[in-house]
Write a protein that binds this DNA or RNA. Structure first.
Lengths: 205, 205
DNA sequence: ACGGCATGTTAGATCAACTAACATATCATG
DNA sequence: CATGATATGTTAGTTGATCTAACATGCCGT
């Protein structure tokens, strides 16, 4: 693995570039870094990256993959600590989602902003963004069976719950909660929202 | 108003540039148009825009103002047709919100993506994005008084309802609903979500 | 009328993405 | 182990876009 000649051939430039890009995005707070900066940070010339990425958007796509897998890992992690079938498990997923988005606000725009909308490589973007969703799906399924909610609604329900967390994340990032509800915090808003919603479900069942 | 000499001094270049930018964004589906294209479309040279906008982001900011005011107008319009105090009024606002975002997907990334997150000019962005929110606030306030919900929760409630619509819009634009619930449409999802949520409120009251 | 200021124009500086042509190391294969 | 194909790197340069400088024109107040 260790390169015999430390000069020339980098050894793992592809990953080094992704890491450099992630660092630059986090430092600058947005994705408008220059390709050459990522190259320099990886210790190579300005043309080297193009041996590994067709263009800058290809690199951004790899960064996006990284971000989505991190999100998935975060969501998977909190599930280890929650009792399956409880409303708390669902809420914990939503909180992990919002926590990730607020702690990595610079990624949010990438994941859901312009690049996301374009959905260049639909199949890849499907895969990666769905990881966390399947975990939510599982939690919702267990909650439904414990609360005598029709199985057929699990998918629809999960989408709605996802939307709630996603919407709160976006509105928080934009600063609307701080502006209109300075005393509130997103996590308790998600908690009460989810409880209210699930209560409504039980009543309408 | 009409310029005596049709050449040289344009007369209303600032607005012409904003309009040109809007057209280009809509045609191209994203905001990566060249400044010179907007200039050409307005019939001026490449340097002329800089007499009206410090740089390209300043132009984008004006476009953003336009988009937000359009959104506000759309939301205001549907309120004319809805009985105040009804759940339908709240739902109609959400639907108008989602309709605008899906019909102008190229604006969504601008309004909520990278540019939005940066929130360069905080005060201006406050103003413009709040227009629609105050209309929602009003509808929620009337609904609360008709349903004996504590007045103090109006603001919090409105944020939550806004989040629901915003989240559904984002998830739709990204294609997740089409993928996971191909038979569903966003508007009925918003409708049932809102009803469920309001039902939960009445029960927990 | 005329002078100042807003608003245009052309030319060009700067910078980032990307490409071409060449260089070097690694690896498969005899 | 030799050797050539291939992967991966370098330098130099093209292109295209933003923005600036210096100059031109015409509108508007006095």
């Amino acid at each position: 693995m260790r390169p015999k000649h430390p000069a020339y051939h980098h050894g793992d430039l592809r990953n080094a570039l992704i890491l450099a890009a992630v660092e630059l995005i986090e430092e600058r707070g947005s994705a408008d870094f220059a390709m050459i900066d990522a190259a320099r940070r990886a210790g190579v010339s300005s043309a080297a990256p193009y041996r590994h990425f067709r263009d800058k958007t290809a690199l951004m796509d790899a960064v996006l993959d990284f971000a989505f897998s991190e999100l998935g890992r975060n969501i998977a992690a909190v599930m280890q600590t929650q009792p399956l079938g409880s409303a708390e498990a669902i809420i914990a997923i939503g909180k992990a989602y919002i926590r990730f988005m607020t702690q990595h606000r610079e990624f949010y725009a990438l994941m859901w902003g312009a690049t996301g909308i374009r959905a260049v490589d639909q199949e890849v973007s499907d895969e990666r963004s769905a990881v966390g969703f399947f975990i939510l799906l599982d939690a919702v399924e267990h909650w439904c069976s414990e609360n005598e909610i029709a199985e057929q609604d699990v998918l629809q329900l999960s989408i709605k719950l996802w939307s709630m967390a996603h919407g709160l994340a976006g509105i928080t990032l934009y600063g609307h909660i701080e502006r209109f509800l300075p005393q509130a915090d997103v996590f308790s808003l998600l908690e009460s929202s989810t409880h209210t919603f699930l209560e409504g479900l039980r009543k309408l069942r």
